[in-house]
Design a protein around this nucleic acid. Structure first.
Lengths: 286, 286
DNA sequence: TATGGGTATAACAAAAGGTTATAGGTGATA
DNA sequence: TATCACCTATAACCTTTTGTTATACCCATA
């Protein structure tokens, strides 16, 4: 049995709805439906009475709701105890500015109860990150390592799509979504070579047999947003940059024929440190 | 986290060896090795110090060994409590004689603490089993249902290889293993059409473009063993029949080019009853 | 220095777990 | 009663996980 099933079950039991619980659990409704059937099969009992209005607990479900929570909590406290056996040391994580600004802080904040001090260092290039890993200046790095030669421990954290970022006065801003055909001629603002976003954007242009029409090359991602905001250019950036544009005049359009995703991994020289970082900060938990 | 990983961990910790534990757990050593790495990754700690002589627990491993057992036992007692909420009813299982003689009793015995009376009925033909399922004369059936049309709930229990069973005076008894080439001409004793063993043996002969050379057709599997024991014939039977031949004069030879396996599934008309049967009697547990 | 017992890794197959798209049931409401 | 919003189930598909076999490599020891 998977403890994740138990977590899903408890959420479902509380909301009395697979669809509502599936949102809370950040998964689709069919996936949760399958999970609960697996749990029922594993336990050999029926947990829910399903209807078109939601689900209701059977008597077995009631018991599981009561006792499952206590089992889960003892599992969680065990996990904490185990991680705390690792000697407490200060940790340093290296990554791009976008991650440092809009992802890492939330991950670190979500992990309470750790007695460690975390530093964040930012870089513009792979080789910075790799060199700092090699020289132990950082304990882990966050970036898309698919195209990078290395032998370190690595664990995929998430994938994200790319969007076309335009000023809302830009002609394309009218559209719901765009394709390469719509903007292939137009110069774009890009990040410097050696960062994963640039690499993937170039790959996408190549895939369409296009040469990437570079307007400006800007190292500091935040200023790209300034460029677009001043309607001085457009850019292709991954989803995380959408967190910049709350109440701004920038629109992010899905690109229908941009087939690549950015895959951010946690990379560490020491596998033990990598696993600990992952468990402490990046493993999603209930 | 999977509770199965915990079970594997505890066995490994106790035997201080991945290979020894993997035997106990009925899996291969690489599989267990992977499982333990998964567990370590999930918990974010290193549990073993691995060496060429075995494994030793780290301090985190010691803690997990202590506390993991209590978590596992509360999970198991919860499962029991849940299953016992199902109203206690008598259950009937239908299957072949070989299963009824050499498999079912051990499975039923391994499941203590159930307050149910179990009946076993045997059949020689699929249609018997199916008809009895349909008419609720049996609650579940054990057989290879891959070639049988049905819409019932079904769950694979195990797979097994076929062997050539010969008297130890038979010329082939000298060999370590045999191939179709060695015995394709020789008449064999077979079970009647409509049982999975017969179907699979016929398929195997067909695969080799051979017609099955039937010597005798015997409905009662036990008497096939009698035939072989009296050196009156040879037969192709699945592994489970090897349990007949303790200290007998029958030898079972692997058939190198017999590519089919028998896959015994638990089949039930009512999925809830099926799951309960599975959990109570057929799910392997630590 | 061969050998046996131990773990790790590679390559592959099967099963599990996720996604989107879609069907079909139920109840509120126009 | 037609329709809509909302619920769960299923199908088709893809990715990841978990198992297998085959093989390499390490180390103690005879």
């Amino acid at each position: 049995m998977k403890t994740e099933w138990l977590e899903s079950f408890i959420e479902t039991a509380k909301t009395k709805s697979l669809s509502k619980a599936s949102e809370q659990l950040h998964m689709t409704q069919p996936a949760l439906s399958k999970q609960m059937r697996k749990l029922e099969e594993d336990l050999g009992v029926t947990l829910f009475i399903r209807s078109a209005t939601g689900v209701e607990l059977t008597s077995a479900g009631e018991i599981l709701l009561q006792e499952g929570e206590s089992i889960l909590s003892s599992v969680h406290s065990l996990q904490k105890k185990l991680v705390s056996t690792q000697e407490a040391c200060d940790l340093t994580i290296g990554t791009w500015q976008s991650m440092a600004a809009f992802y890492l802080p939330y991950q670190l904040a979500s992990a309470k109860d750790h007695n460690r001090h975390i530093d964040i260092k930012t870089s513009h290039h792979y080789y910075d990150l790799l060199e700092q890993l090699e020289s132990n200046k950082i304990d882990g790095a966050l970036f898309d390592d698919r195209e990078v030669q290395h032998t370190y421990w690595s664990k995929l954290l998430f994938k994200e799509d790319f969007y076309l970022f335009v000023n809302d006065q830009h002609p394309l801003a009218e559209k719901e979504n765009v394709s390469f055909e719509d903007f292939k001629e137009e110069p774009i603002v890009v990040l410097p070579p050696g960062c994963d976003v640039r690499t993937l954007v170039e790959k996408a242009y190549n895939r369409h047999n296009l040469k990437i029409p570079i307007g400006n090359e800007i190292e500091f991602a935040q200023s790209i947003m300034g460029f677009i905001s001043a309607n001085l250019g457009i850019s292709i950036l991954p989803e995380i940059f959408m967190r910049h544009l709350q109440s701004s005049n920038i629109k992010a359009l899905p690109i229908t024929d941009f087939k690549f995703k950015r895959e951010i991994s946690l990379v560490a020289k020491n596998p033990d440190v990598g696993k600990m970082l992952y468990t402490l900060f990046f493993k999603t938990r209930s």
